[in-house]
Computed example of a mutant assay.
Amino acid sequence: MYYFATYALKFLLSLFGRIKIYDKSNLPKREGYIIACTHTGWVDILWLGVAVLPTKIHYMAKKELFQTAFTKTLMKQLHAFPVDRANPGPSTIKIPRKLLAEGKVVGIFPSGTRTKENVPLKKGAVTIAGSANAPIVPAAYKGPTNFKDLFQRKKPRIIFGTPIAPNNALSKKESIEAMMKELEAQFNALQMKIADK
Results as ranks from 00 to 15, higher is better:
V106R: 04
Y59S: 12
R97I: 07
I35Q: 06
E182Y: 05
V126L: 02
K123C: 02
A101Y: 14
P88D: 02
I19R: 13
K116W: 11
N87C: 07
K154P: 02
N26H: 11
V126K: 00
A8K: 12
Y7W: 15
I136H: 01
V105Q: 04
L150H: 04
N118V: 15
K116P: 09
F151D: 03
I158C: 01
E117L: 13
K56M: 15
E177P: 01
Y141S: 09
L183V: 00
F160N: 00
R30G: 15
A189T: 01
F66A: 03
F11P: 11
I95V: 14
F187K: 00
L13N: 14
H79A: 09
T162P: 04
K148T: 11
A169Y: 09
Y141D: 05
Y33A: 04
A51F: 03
S175Q: 03
L100H: 00
A61H: 07
K94I: 09
T113K: 09
P163F: 02
S171Y: 07
Y3P: 08
P28I: 12
N188A: 14
G17T: 10
E117D: 15
I45C: 09
A189W: 01
W47A: 13
A129R: 00
Q67P: 05
A5T: 10
T68P: 06
P156C: 04
I45V: 12
T6P: 09
L183T: 00
S131D: 10
G143M: 07
K123P: 08
K193I: 09
Q77A: 15
N146Q: 09
Q67W: 14
Y3R: 14
I93S: 04
N167M: 06
V43W: 07
L53W: 12
P110Q: 01
T68E: 12
T145A: 14
I45S: 06
I158R: 02
V43R: 13
L150Q: 01
P28G: 13
P82A: 03
E182G: 05
K181C: 06
V126F: 01
I34D: 04
S131E: 05
F160R: 01
A69T: 15
G161E: 06
P144M: 06
N87W: 10
Y3D: 14
F147Q: 11
K72L: 13
W42V: 11
L99C: 08
T92N: 04
K116A: 12
Y141W: 05
A51S: 11
E102A: 09
T145G: 11
Q191S: 03
V119A: 08
L170P: 03
D44L: 13
Q152N: 08
R153A: 12
R153K: 09
